[in-house]
């Protein structure tokens, strides 16, 4: 028995979890769905997929879900592009959801196109704003690596949007609760034609794609040994370490730290670029950060054109001084 009023339009919010814990972006997606739902007199149904996850599902009520659907299966413990897309599409169809919101995370970007084919739905990827005033949803998304922005609308009956992490704010959870409903989706072996067998965690370090603060180093640091200084500054801020392509290509840092056009696109609240010139391909990956600090000895380095605060000086002197000041401030 459903306590929800009938015939209200439904927005399905896919709340990504890994290892039984919601990703931060899961709350952002549910909250963004709620904002749209309020503009359209619709309601939010959240979906959690995985194994042993029923206990966390209720949390989503506090971000605006009026109902949470849980699909649990031991075979869904690890991600599978084919099985997860089947589950999401099937739940979207049985709920008659007209709008589906996904995170533009590795999982959401992978699953989005597959669901869109199954549901004959248009898909707009990596959106940074959604607006439903007037009944039509207009999404804004960056193109040309953030050098342009486009507004897009979806023409199909069912519409799918994926949201760039860290852009939509989830805010604090309210006291609201949601009904949790467990549903079964029949899955056969053929539904697992691509399946994750193992996840290799990068030894507990913070990932640039998810970090709220990033400290990145460039070729001006002259050698991998000097990244200790970057790690110390990052450590004082509880930040992730990032890198320019020049240092990744030189083998000083691993590729998963590379920020930019051929690395990761990031939008943290604070991005500190140390001894990075600010080539367009680097800016492409980080210029949508809320605040940017540049430390570079060349006052004409292009990084200063996007920086909110800059120090034109020698990184080897400035960075340790900044680290010391931060430790002082945060009482470390």
């Amino acid at each position: 028995m459903s306590v929800l009023p009938k015939n209200k339009m439904k927005i399905l919010a896919f709340a990504e979890q890994r290892n039984g814990q919601f990703k931060k972006v899961a709350f952002e997606v549910v909250k963004a769905a709620k904002t749209i739902a309020d503009q359209m007199n619709a309601e939010v149904v959240a979906l959690v997929v995985g194994n042993n996850i029923a206990s966390i599902a209720g949390q989503l009520g506090g971000y605006g879900a009026s109902k949470v659907i849980v699909v649990e299966d031991s075979k869904l413990e690890l991600y599978s592009t084919t099985a997860y897309s089947k589950v999401i599409a099937e739940i979207a169809a049985t709920e008659s959801a007209e709008v589906i919101l996904l995170p533009a995370s590795a999982m959401g970007k992978d699953v989005g196109p597959r669901i869109s084919v199954k549901l004959n739905a248009g898909l707009a990827v990596d959106c940074t704003a959604l607006n439903a005033n007037g009944g039509t949803i207009t999404a804004t998304r960056p193109v040309y690596a953030g050098k342009g922005m486009v507004d897009v609308t979806i023409k199909t009956q069912t519409k799918i949007f994926s949201l760039r992490p860290n852009v939509f704010t989830a805010g604090n959870s309210s006291a609201a609760t949601a009904a949790v409903e467990t549903k079964k989706v029949e899955l056969s072996d053929t539904d697992f034609s691509a399946v994750v067998k193992e996840v290799k965690q990068s030894s507990g370090k913070k990932d640039v794609a998810e970090a709220d603060i990033i400290v990145s180093g460039g070729r001006g640091l002259k050698g991998p040994e000097h990244f200790k200084m970057i790690e110390d500054l990052a450590g004082s801020l509880n930040a992730a370490v990032g890198a320019s392509r020049a240092v990744v290509d030189a083998g000083w840092r691993p590729h998963d730290e590379q920020v930019g056009q051929t690395g990761k696109t990031v939008s943290p609240s604070l991005y500190v670029a140390v001894a990075i010139s600010g080539a367009v391909q680097h800016l492409a990956g980080m210029s949508s950060s809320k605040y940017i600090v540049a430390i570079n000895k060349d006052k004409d380095a292009p990084i200063f054109t996007v920086a909110d605060y800059g120090i034109v000086g020698d990184a080897f002197e400035v960075v340790p001084a900044v680290t010391a000041e931060i430790k002082k401030l945060l009482g470390k």
Partner: peptide, 23 residues
Amino acid sequence: RVEVSAMRKPPAKTSGKIVGTDG
């Protein structure tokens, strides 16, 4: 299925503040 209705440049950053030249 997906139509672009407008394209624009992202809002330009107002030039930042140079805080200093050394530690």
